[in-house]
Amino acid sequence: MTAGPDRGAAAQPAGLLGRRGFVGGSLAAVTATAFAAGTRPWTSLVAVGDAPLAEQLGALLRDTPGVRAVGEAYLVSHEEHRDVPRLLAALAADLGIQPDGAPPADLGARAWEAVQADLLARRTVRLDGWVASPTEARLAAMTLLVHPS
């Protein structure tokens, strides 16, 4: 499940920027810091207000070029998820929520837990060479779809 490694690009400065962006934007990396600081994860990342669930999910990851690259790589191998309702359904299943219901207040925490559960269970996908949680990859895809550049 991959778009294939891009070894040539990885050696270029632009590739480094992309990787930094992915690391900085990833749920697991950011929440680790949040926990270390004793703060609740994700609250600063979740869109406020009554935005639709898809938009809130699409705002969970920091919108960086790296996250977008991972999201695009996921969609290349999962064309059916370019359809937002279908991607939303998949993510809702990941997080154990209703796709057509109101976003839960602990959306970020649920996402973080789902990602951790994927990683600890060794459920991973490889996207552009990056080892990622499938949930995380779908969140990256949602970021791309709800915030097209």
Partner: peptide, 16 residues
């Protein structure tokens, strides 16, 4: 390794 370093917040792994 990729799953482990991500879960522990160490970083991210790109397989080449």
């Amino acid at each position: 390794l990729g799953a482990e370093v991500a879960a522990r917040g160490i970083g991210r792994v790109q397989v080449v």
